[in-house]
Amino acid sequence: MGVEEKLGDMGVVTTTLETAVNWARTNAMWPMLFGLACCAIEMMAAQASNYDMSRFGMELMRPSPRQSDLMIVAGRVSRKMAPVLRRLYDQMPEPKWVIAMGDCASCGGVFNNYAIVQGVDEVVPVDVYVAGCPPRPEALIHGVVTLFEKVKGEKFKDPAKA
């Protein structure tokens, strides 16, 4: 109706600003290399040629936190590593998301003892939890797609009210 009718076949679409921004954010979300243990190997396998993650826009894995949007915490986080994890999360620029990959990152996993942080949500806020020990590459991709659904539904926060 309205503008679109008048323009016809000129190749113009109208949408909301939020949809456009979220579309841009999900189509090229770069993860940060944060593979700690066994889940890191499955993350590498998800990045390799059999279950290709670059179909979803994650072509590169940036080791630097300043250049990445998504932190996939893959593996068990020990008490010595937790401050390092928090520091890296703080160094990432907004907007940022966190996927807790695997059982050890979600809830401590098999290791219910003194040395492992029982769930990485004691250290950083988590958006998506992917279960499995280790999760199959397809499960990780499903987790990433779930995150994309979540991001597509995000609304802008009014900076005056926040």
């Binding site: 008490r79 010595k80 401590g108 219910n112 003892n113 003194y114 040395a115 029982q118």
Partner: peptide, 20 residues
């Protein structure tokens, strides 16, 4: 293996497992 400010020696039998 443990952080420098850790107290205690975990593999002793009187150290708790830390079970949650």
């Amino acid at each position: 293996l443990l952080p420098d400010d850790w107290e205690g020696h975990p593999l002793r039998k009187d150290y708790p497992l830390g079970y949650e």
